[in-house]
C-alpha cells in the first residue's frame, strides 16, 4: 500500500472512531392489551421520523407480532438519544377466541386471531432477553396491579434494566395516574395521553434521562 493511501486509510479510521455512533438503546414497549402501546409508538415515530409503526384498534391484540423501527433519534434539551423502538404485542396469560367474536367476527376469523395473538405474546416474552430497557404502558383508567405488569417489572428488576412507566389515557376523566404512582413508586413514571399528545415533551425528556 502506498504511504499516501495508508495515511488516507488511517485518517479515515481515525475519524470513524471519533464519530462512531453510540449503539442505539433497544427499547421495548410493553403493557396489557389495549393500554395504548401502538398509539404511543406511532406518536414517537411520527414526532421523530415522520412515519407510523402500525395499526391501532379498540379490539384487543390488534398487534400480533412485534414491529421494530431502528435509529429513532430523540432530541431534548440539547441532548440526543438514539433508540431502536420495538412495539410488542404485550403480555397476556389467557386468550379466548370467544372474546373476538364479540366484535362481530366470524368464528374462523376469531380462532385465527386468537392463535396469532398467542404467537404474539410468545414473541413479546422472547424480546425480554434482547432489550436495553422497557417503556411499560398502563391504562390509567384501569387497575395497575395486573399480573402482566408485575411480571414485566419483575423481569426488568431482575435483569437490572431501566424501566419507564407511562400512565396513559390521562385525557379520560376517570384516569387515575396517582394509583399507578402509588403502586410502583420505585420506578419513574410519566402521565400522558398518547392519543391527544398531553405532556408528551415531558415523556421525551424522561426517555432521554432513563435510557440515555
Amino acid at each position: 500500500m502506498s504511504p499516501i493511501k495508508l495515511f488516507k486509510n488511517n485518517f479515515r479510521d481515525f475519524f470513524k472512531k471519533l464519530f462512531k455512533k453510540k449503539k442505539n438503546a433497544r427499547i421495548g414497549i410493553y403493557g396489557p392489551p389495549n393500554a395504548g402501546k401502538t398509539t404511543l409508538a406511532n406518536r414517537i415515530l411520527r414526532d421523530w421520523t415522520g412515519d407510523a409503526m402500525g395499526p391501532v384498534s379498540h379490539i384487543e391484540h390488534e398487534t400480533r407480532s412485534a414491529r421494530r423501527r431502528e435509529g429513532v433519534t430523540i432530541k431534548t434539551n440539547g441532548h440526543s438519544i438514539g433508540l431502536d423502538v420495538i412495539d410488542t404485542p404485550g403480555l397476556a396469560t389467557k386468550i379466548d377466541f370467544h372474546n373476538f367474536m364479540d366484535y362481530e367476527m366470524e368464528e374462523d376469523e376469531a380462532k385465527r386471531r386468537a392463535k396469532e395473538a398467542t404467537e404474539g405474546v410468545i414473541e413479546a416474552v422472547k424480546w425480554l432477553d434482547d432489550l436495553d430497557g422497557i417503556i411499560l404502558v398502563m391504562d390509567a383508567t384501569q387497575d395497575p396491579f395486573t399480573q402482566v405488569n408485575v411480571t414485566v417489572i419483575g423481569n426488568m428488576e431482575a435483569r437490572k434494566l431501566p424501566l419507564l412507566i407511562v400512565s396513559n389515557k390521562v385525557d379520560m376523566p376517570e384516569a387515575s395516574p396517582n394509583t399507578i404512582m402509588n403502586a410502583f413508586p420505585q420506578h419513574p413514571m410519566v402521565s400522558i395521553s398518547a392519543l391527544e399528545g398531553n405532556n408528551i415533551d415531558t415523556l421525551y425528556q424522561e426517555i432521554a434521562k432513563t435510557f440515555g
Binding site: A92, K94, I95, K115, T118, V121, G154, N155, E157
Partner: peptide
C-alpha cells in the same frame, strides 16, 4: 422468579386450544 413467570406465560400460550384450554390466571 420473574424469569419463570415469563417462561410460564410462554408455555401457556403454546398450550391454548380453541374450545379447550384458554390460559391461566
Amino acid at each position: 422468579t420473574p424469569d419463570e413467570e415469563a417462561n410460564l406465560i410462554e408455555m401457556t400460550m403454546t398450550k391454548i386450544q380453541p374450545d379447550g384450554f384458554s390460559g391461566i390466571e
